[in-house]
Write a protein that binds this DNA or RNA. Structure first.
Lengths: 194, 194, 194, 194
DNA sequence: GATGAATGAGCCTTCATTCAT
DNA sequence: AATGAATGAAGGCTCATTCAT
């Protein structure tokens, strides 16, 4: 006699369908960009009627937002950083740098859409800033731990975290290579002063 | 056989008109973005007929390229960096950082269009990478000079230049404040190692 | 063999539900017009699923018809006219005019939907003509009674009834004021000839 | 050497084209109603591209407005009323009534669109009220003249004008016949009082 | 009875671009 | 050089209606 099960079969199916539509969108957006992907394209690729998208999403923009909602980088980076808290920065930073760079590479096209639309769409801009800050903070906390551990000298760890992650993003965006990451970490550790 | 003798009066006028159209475009693109500015908008703002744009530019994309052709940052930065070759990095870097940040701020909306379209348009991407590299190289050469002068220790100055400029770009893009630049420079100079 | 014995409880509930849906429709149609009210809107406002409407009504037009089925003006006007049969037209006509005008005002938005859709939809046109004629006839019969009573001179009472009601409808539709009704009645009574 | 002739050939052609598009619209709107006529329909019927409509009209609504701009009834009625100023109302009113009725009949479908959209669209409502008032005023002035001439007794001629025109409109809208107009005029002249 | 996922045709509108004048 | 009328494809979105559950 349970009238309101917590998730009915139908709800499940609906949720699955929603997920499927997002996946289709991720695919096409990555290939052709957000603006160059029409709802009709999406519908065809998903094997559904165009109208259905408006059953699950308010907007084409809403759909874009939903795509990013499911594809944050934070979780993936945490997997690299969290286990490293006890290990020295001299080792860890290079690993993190490489992992981050590789992550960006893997999500290459999605990143570009993200950045692109963030330049224009306030909602997306907010998320993109959040995303960047999350990454910075994740690393900053680790660095602070290493300061506390006496490995690093006391300093503004927020900024040093930026000095690692921001160049990586820009390197990725401007076609730089992963080989340069060693220099990056070394410079960060030692500074350039004589 | 000289078809193009010297610059005729007519050529001058044509060049002026072209420049004027670019200025109008700069204005509107900055306000509303490239994609949201129609040729008709431009024509109205410029007080000319829509068709005229196609005398001076191949198409709308060409116009966008022409806009950036005239508005590189390089020259402005050079004015700050060149006179500083003899002065110590400890002073100069902060000045440069601030100047760069301020420059980005001044051209705020144009930068966003630039980045945005670069994510999508190969031609623009090329220019945006160039632009970034120009900035990096400009600074790298100065840093190399300071290494040679014995102020800085020998290192990969390309990378240290990146570590100054890239965080600034990202800071600007993610709403950071100019107040953080001191930490940036200090970290770069001293490193974070104990 | 009695399939429809008497009204079962279930029938009652169904009828109630039907009535409730009509009320919701009346509300929304009045607010936004028939064409601008979607089944989804109605469903939301009524707290039911869209599909349910198709259990109670053939289609959206049918629903519109059902709305007017329940909201004729005749009954309301009869209440004013019937008790007046013995009283003189010189008094009664002004009362009726005012009552009618007020009635239209009260149902302002519904009247507009009615008129609007009648211009296009033959079914509705029929009802609207009926409605108008009912009103005219109601009044015409009263006037005939007053002719019989010797108060009014013999004439085409159908037409005089029109000359009272039609200007009122038009007055209402074109933003006229109730203050003009006195002139209307006086003109009707006395004529304009010298 | 006239640079700005008052109307160039091109302007003329443009104006003609505009007129042609309005004519097409009048045709189709009359046949199928405004809302049921798509821009595509109009374009096909006019042998032009859909986009061209937006060169000449802001909107689909604007187009509707333009249609009515060109098809007011006032001028036609004036032709009947103006020459009659010196003639007695006893003759003229019936002529006018018949002319008005015939006019409405001739523009039958257009009138319905007009009324229909006026119920919903504030801009059109305004014009429809104007139109009605123009007709009323035109007649009211004539009646006032006949009062001055001593033919009619002094009275509110605005209202008597309404009492002629409004029933005619309603008669037309509710399927009445022209035969009833005599009664109408007679009632108006003589009144119904004994 | 009731739900709500799914359909799919259709609409208004925009806009880069062309071309006769 | 300059105009602006004309094109026509494409796009986001709405919505009455159906039907499996």
């Amino acid at each position: 006699m349970e009238i309101a099960k917590h998730t009915t079969k139908r709800d499940q199916q609906a949720e699955e369908r929603r997920g499927q539509l997002i996946d289709v969108a991720l695919e096409l957006f990555s290939e052709k960009g957000w603006e160059n992907t029409s709802i009709k394209d999406l519908a065809e690729a998903g094997g559904v009627a165009p109208g259905l998208f408006y059953h699950y999403f308010e907007n084409k923009e809403d759909l874009l937002l939903a795509v990013f909602e499911r594809h944050g980088f934070k979780a993936e980076l945490e997997k690299v950083v969290f286990p490293a808290y006890e290990r020295p920065a001299s080792e860890v930073l290079l690993e993190v740098a490489r992992a981050y760079f590789k992550l960006l590479d893997r999500k290459h096209r999605l990143v570009r859409i993200f950045v692109r639309e963030a330049m224009t769409n306030p909602n997306l801009e907010e998320r993109w800033i959040e995303q960047c800050n999350d990454t910075v903070n994740l690393l900053a906390r680790y660095l602070a731990a290493r300061v506390a551990a006496g490995e690093l000298r006391p300093h503004n760890t927020q900024m040093s975290a930026r000095m690692l992650t921001h160049p990586i993003v820009m390197l990725h965006l401007t076609g730089g290579s992963a080989d340069e990451l060693e220099s990056l970490v070394q410079c960060l550790m030692e500074g350039i002063n004589n």
